[in-house]
Simulated scan of single mutants.
Amino acid sequence: MLQIHALTKRFVGESETVCAVDGLSFEVGPGEVFGLLGPNGAGKTTTLRMVLGLIAPDSGDAEVAGIPTSVDPFAAKAKLGFVSASDGVYPWLTVREMLLYFADLYGVGPDEATARLHVLAEVMDIEGLLDRRAGTLSTGQRQRVTLVRGLIHDPPVMLLDEPTRGLDVVGVQTIFRYISHLRHVGKAVVVCTHRLDEAERLCDRFGLLHRGKMQYEGTLTQLRGVSGREHLVEMFDDLMNPSTPPNEIPT
């Protein structure tokens, strides 16, 4: 559903050139949650921005539902849903108005948009919020509305960038339920986070990024076998404070 082929991005500064993403490749299938993990500066958000078409890669490409972003970026974007820690609600619109507005932006017809809104509002428990102005919502309520907004056009691929940042325990559990729903309805999901304990609970497979390169990729069982470590945080500690160069899982 999502295929990343040797994506590379360099940023040229006054004194040095930084390779933010270095030949990154992975794929995510329907109903699979892939954790793209790493510390700040590892290249996670840069990767998502290239997939979303916000920045152009220096080399490599991404395919969304079989559509190369370099060939037809608008068609590829229409197959993507995106959720980040920033809610970006429109405060003067009601929740219903805002969600139907986004559905219209993606070319979803009024009847279909209304039907999807009804289903998603029930899934995310925002039925009682639909006719409230978005600017009056609490942080947790805005987050639930943002999660519905990402799915209103029924994209096959969902990208989540640090979705639990700044949320309390209740908000985090909402994200967990949302990702379970995405898996259940067959979405291909990429979760970018540095919360490794949460990633172990959420994800089916993992890609561990360090300095823009994929160091480990696989299920938690595979990563434990190749790294000799039990938990993701221990694997990253080895990567960031190596006594010997880390092994790589062939992909």
Rank of each mutant, 00 (worst) to 15 (best):
L7F: 09
L7M: 10
L7E: 07
T8I: 11
T8E: 02
T8R: 06
K9H: 09
K9D: 06
K9C: 04
R10M: 03
R10L: 00
F11P: 00
V12F: 06
G13S: 10
G13V: 04
G13N: 01
E14R: 15
E14M: 13
E14L: 10
E14N: 07
S15G: 15
E16K: 05
E16L: 12
E16Q: 13
T17L: 00
T17W: 00
V18R: 09
V18M: 03
C19I: 14
C19A: 14
C19H: 11
A20R: 01
A20Y: 00
V21S: 07
D22T: 02
G23N: 09
G23Y: 10
L24N: 00
L24G: 06
L24A: 05
L24W: 05
L24P: 07
S25A: 13
S25E: 10
S25D: 04
S25K: 04
S25T: 11
F26C: 02
F26M: 02
F26I: 01
E27R: 12
E27A: 11
V28Y: 00
V28R: 04
G29Y: 02
G29V: 04
G29P: 04
G29D: 06
P30H: 08
P30D: 13
P30R: 14
G31T: 06
E32A: 03
E32G: 02
E32S: 08
E32F: 01
V33I: 14
V33C: 06
F34I: 00
F34A: 05
G35R: 03
G35D: 00
L36G: 02
L36T: 04
L37V: 04
L37F: 07
L37C: 13
L37N: 02
G38E: 11
G38N: 09
G38S: 07
P39A: 12
N40F: 12
N40A: 12
G41W: 12
G41K: 04
G41D: 08
G41P: 01
A42W: 02
G43F: 06
K44S: 09
K44L: 02
T45L: 07
T46P: 02
T46V: 06
T47K: 05
T47W: 03
L48P: 03
L48N: 09
L48M: 15
R49C: 00
R49P: 01
R49Q: 06
M50T: 01
M50W: 07
V51F: 10
L52G: 07
L52F: 10
L52V: 11
G53F: 09
G53V: 08
L54E: 08
I55A: 01
I55Q: 00
I55Y: 00
P57A: 13
P57C: 10
P57F: 11
G60F: 11
G60T: 10
D61K: 09
A62L: 10
E63F: 12
V64M: 08
V64P: 08
V64I: 14
A65P: 07
A65M: 05
A65V: 01
A65K: 05
G66T: 09
G66P: 06
G66V: 02
I67F: 14
I67E: 15
P68A: 13
P68I: 15
T69Q: 11
S70L: 14
S70T: 13
S70M: 13
S70R: 14
V71E: 15
V71I: 14
D72E: 14
P73Y: 08
F74M: 14
F74Q: 14
A75F: 13
A78L: 15
A78N: 15
A78D: 14
K79R: 15
L80A: 05
L80G: 02
G81H: 12
G81D: 09
F82T: 09
F82K: 06
F82A: 08
